[in-house]
Design a protein around this nucleic acid. Structure first.
Length: 556
RNA sequence: GCGCGAUUAGCUCAGUUGGAUAGAGCGUUGGCCUCCGGAGCCAAAGGUCGGGCGUUCGAGUCGCCCAUCGCGCGCCA
């Protein structure tokens, strides 16, 4: 919808350029939705931008020239008024015909409404969650899951070809520690008096896995050497935990296209190949028996070890190999979602990506801040070390999937999130999830009522939408029309939370409209046009919720 | 010490290439159910956008300095 305006303004600038009144290459005009109706429906500051770059040209004078050409270009088809105001804004007021056309196209597009093609089919990978299979997912992972999934939805709807991937850290010390932990519990359950490893995982789930081992395998592990037992148990335990994680995410509505194993990466020699490549291109050097990556060449603060003095690999080495593998699969861009406590790794990963011949921003890392849980404002204690952390599953079971997902997505990734469990399940207007879902359900209720009264849902092509003349009706359409831009903005800036903000706004306008005006009015034609309007709003709200992975209930 | 991030109403937070009088929810105060779902609506009060300097016609937004908080700074994973 904004596209129409952008084209008109572009055309106007072209006219002015042809007349020699603009001496520079016209910028792509930025058109914003006005927040105050006195400024019309949309506004552009393009004249001010240009005037500031042209010697001796006043912004308002230039704005007048642009405004005149805009008027000329449009020929009264879409615009009702073009006015220069303030320091040089051009305020645009749209015609009834424009709004009607907008609503009609929303109805026509239906389930495809707001789909865009900024992605142009480019391939993007979103890697998220990627929790080590050493324990259940906690709330923080839930936030990452909701964000990654919604982002993937948004990117895909904006025309990117998206893959969702989970990286499994199934090699290395943590798995060893997992094995030791379960083994110790196993021995204890077999009445052997052994100490629990200092760094072991203390959660209850470790005991459960040990118990299950006894049930299924009996005392088999008692009879084998400790080293072998720990190794075998580690594999079994990690597998069981990973399966649990998979189930958990599935129930949260998140499904991955690919689960990528670090162990397999190592077995396939990807790390060696990566090291060879970096060595060949001169990005590594040996120092004190270790192999270093010269990441300082690419803006990192210090160089990083890839192969330790004892010949073993660092975690970083396999991570670089993993990212190399991603690009080899043909992704145009890779998005990683990490916990904010890993921000120290961003610079070195980006350095590595560049050393592999890619651009700095071919890797984009989204950092998510911690989630703090509370009940009625009182913090809920969480400590991973003591194994007392609150799991995603607990939160989900308590507040429900929709509330959890929505609340995780109300804030931008890089700001702390305060999650009030009591508020999240409260069915009141305090709870943004219900507020928005209620707007959707309310529309569905109206549509049901219409059916019960024998009022047919209108055929959008036949309805006389000219009857929608109230400012609130125009406002609803204006917000509907904004969704494609919100989707595009969310995709480009990797900020799906814009959709939650959008949903709150349009829901408010809907509730307000509902309270003040009757959809099922006495007049048949008016009713038909308002029903069409409701269908449009339902489409917009439903689509935004869908992209967030939150259900749009017909009744609540 | 160095780096990254945060700092916007009493609380939790939005604020889209720098634009017009900085917004929302909660909380507080006061109103609204003859009628499509009151899980809702309306109104009021509430701000030195952490502080300072700078760039600009114009700064919550960009740059520098400072303060406070969080996190990261290993041949850990």
């Amino acid at each position: 919808m904004k596209g129409t305006l952008t084209n008109i303004v572009k055309g106007a600038l072209k006219l002015l350029a042809a007349e020699g009144k603009i001496t520079l290459t016209p910028p792509t005009p930025f058109i914003e939705m006005t927040r105050d109706r006195r400024f019309g429906d949309y506004a552009t500051n393009v004249a001010m931008i240009m005037a500031s770059r042209m010697e001796g040209v006043g912004a308002r004078d230039l704005a007048e020239e642009v405004a005149a050409r805009i008027w000329e270009m449009d020929g009264g088809r879409n615009l009702d008024e073009v006015k220069v105001a303030g320091p040089g804004f051009i305020n645009l007021t749209m015609s009834p015909a424009f709004w009607i056309g907008t609503l009609r196209s929303v109805l026509r597009e239906g389930g495809d409404f707001a789909r865009t093609d900024v992605g142009k089919g480019r391939r993007v990978q979103v890697e998220f969650v990627s929790a080590n299979p050493t324990g259940p997912l906690h709330v923080g992972h839930g936030r990452g899951a909701a964000l990654g999934d919604a982002l993937a939805n948004v990117l895909s709807y904006a025309g990117y070809e998206v893959q969702r991937e989970y990286y499994i850290n199934d090699a290395g010390n943590q798995i060893q520690t997992l094995g030791l932990s379960v083994y110790a519990r196993y021995l204890q359950a077999c009445r052997r008096d052994v100490p629990f490893p200092e760094e072991g995982y203390k959660g209850d789930y470790i005991r459960q896995i040990a118990g299950q081992l006894i049930e299924e395998q009996g005392d088999r592990y008692l009879e084998m050497p400790e080293e072998q037992a720990v190794e075998e148990i580690a594999v079994v335990a990690a597998g069981a935990i990973l399966e649990d994680i998979r189930q958990d995410l599935e129930e949260f509505g998140v499904r991955f296209d690919r689960w990528f194993s670090e162990k397999r990466l190592l077995e396939e020699g990807a790390v060696q190949a990566t090291l060879a490549e970096l060595e060949k291109s001169g990005h590594t050097y040996s120092h004190e028996g270790a192999l270093w990556f010269r990441s300082t060449d690419m803006g990192d603060d210090k160089d990083r070890v890839m192969v330790k003095g004892d010949g073993s690999l660092t975690y970083f080495a396999s991570d670089v190999a993993y990212h190399r593998e991603k690009y080899q699969r043909g992704f145009h861009r890779v998005v990683d979602i990490w916990g904010a406590d890993h921000h120290g790794y961003v610079a070195r990963m980006k350095a590595a990506v560049q050393a592999l011949g890619r651009q700095w921003d071919d890797l984009q890392v989204l950092l998510i801040q911690l989630v703090s849980l509370s009940r009625k404002g009182v913090p809920v204690a969480m400590s991973t070390r003591a194994g007392e952390f609150v799991t995603l599953r607990q939160v989900r079971e308590e507040v429900g999937r929709d509330a959890a997902r929505f609340i995780f997505l109300t804030r931008k990734a890089d700001s702390k999130l305060d999650f009030d469990l009591d508020l999240a399940k409260e069915q009141s207007n305090d709870n943004p999830v219900y507020y928005v879902q209620y707007a959707h359900a309310r529309i569905c209720s109206i549509l049901r009522n219409a059916g019960e009264r024998g009022v047919d849902l209108p055929d959008p092509e036949d309805v006389d939408l000219m009857l929608l003349q109230l400012p609130e009706e125009r406002e609803l359409i204006r917000y509907m029309a904004a969704l494609p831009d919100v989707v595009e903005g969310a995709a480009v800036s990797l900020e799906p939370h814009r959709l939650t903000t959008y949903l709150r706004d349009i829901s408010t306008i809907l509730h307000n409209y509902y309270y003040h005006h009757r959809v099922l009015a006495d007049d048949v034609q008016l009713t038909a046009s308002r029903l069409a309007l409701m269908l449009g709003v339902k489409t917009a709200i439903g689509k935004a919720l869908e992209l967030l992975g939150v259900s749009a209930p017909e009744r609540m």
